[in-house]
């Protein structure tokens, strides 16, 4: 269960978030909509621990994590531009989180194979990330975020930049993958159809959020 309470944040004196609140029960997928500049991405960064709010708190499964550094939070994050590690191949990208935790080589290899199957990229392990197509790169980024089994998965416009057909196919895939693997997820998007396909419910940032 993710619980964001009364979070406010400003950059150089400009308010970005004002008393934002969000609750995502375990097993729920919530779509976060709102005009650009509403602070959707900033809210995700606060949840991930990449930004510390000026006021307010973030709770995860009953524990306050507002000041816990990102690497100790167990929250997965997927950016719009995938941000794959260019110096690592597909398998090493997906296994990165487990390697940081000190998992054994065999454990990493098993999990990587598992996730390549989940995202439909069997046999892609040794590929260089520079040689992936846009859709493939998104699948790898999703697999990488899922690999360490995060308590919450945050998706920042994960399907933006794909052509319509690919977008719709990936949205369906994403919906089923999230259903089968993740405990809670927040999806930032501009696209109402995408929100309806992937998420259980929709929250508009700036409006009443409970």
């Amino acid at each position: 269960m993710l619980d964001v309470r009364d979070v406010s944040l400003s950059f150089d004196g400009h308010p970005v978030l004002q008393r934002a609140a969000l609750q995502v029960p375990t097993g729920d997928v919530v779509a976060l909509l709102g005009p650009s500049g509403a602070g959707k991405s900033s809210l995700l960064r606060v949840i991930a621990g990449l930004l510390v709010p000026d006021t307010g708190t973030v709770w995860l499964d009953g524990r306050e994590v507002t000041h816990v550094p990102p690497h100790q939070r167990h929250i997965g994050l997927m950016f719009q531009n995938e941000q794959l590690f260019p110096h690592l191949d597909v398998a090493a990208n997906i296994g990165f989180g487990l390697r940081m935790q000190g998992a054994t080589k065999t454990a990493i290899a098993t999990r990587v194979e598992e996730l390549l199957t989940v995202v439909g990229l069997q046999g892609f392990g040794q590929r260089r990330v520079a040689h992936l197509s846009g859709g493939e790169a998104k699948r790898v980024a999703l697999a990488r975020a899922l690999a360490p089994r995060p308590a919450v998965l945050l998706l920042d416009e994960p399907l933006t930049g794909l052509d319509r057909e690919l977008h719709d196919r990936l949205a369906l895939d994403l919906a089923s993958i999230l259903r089968s693997t993740v405990t809670a997820a927040v999806l930032v998007t501009h696209d109402h159809d995408e929100a309806a396909t992937v998420a259980d419910r929709t929250v508009v940032l700036g409006a009443d959020m409970t």
Binding site: Q72, G76, L77, F79, F85, G97, A147, P148
Partner: peptide, 8 residues
């Protein structure tokens, strides 16, 4: 940032 969220 991604690396941090992955536990690094």
């Amino acid at each position: 940032a991604v690396a941090r969220t992955l536990g690094a």
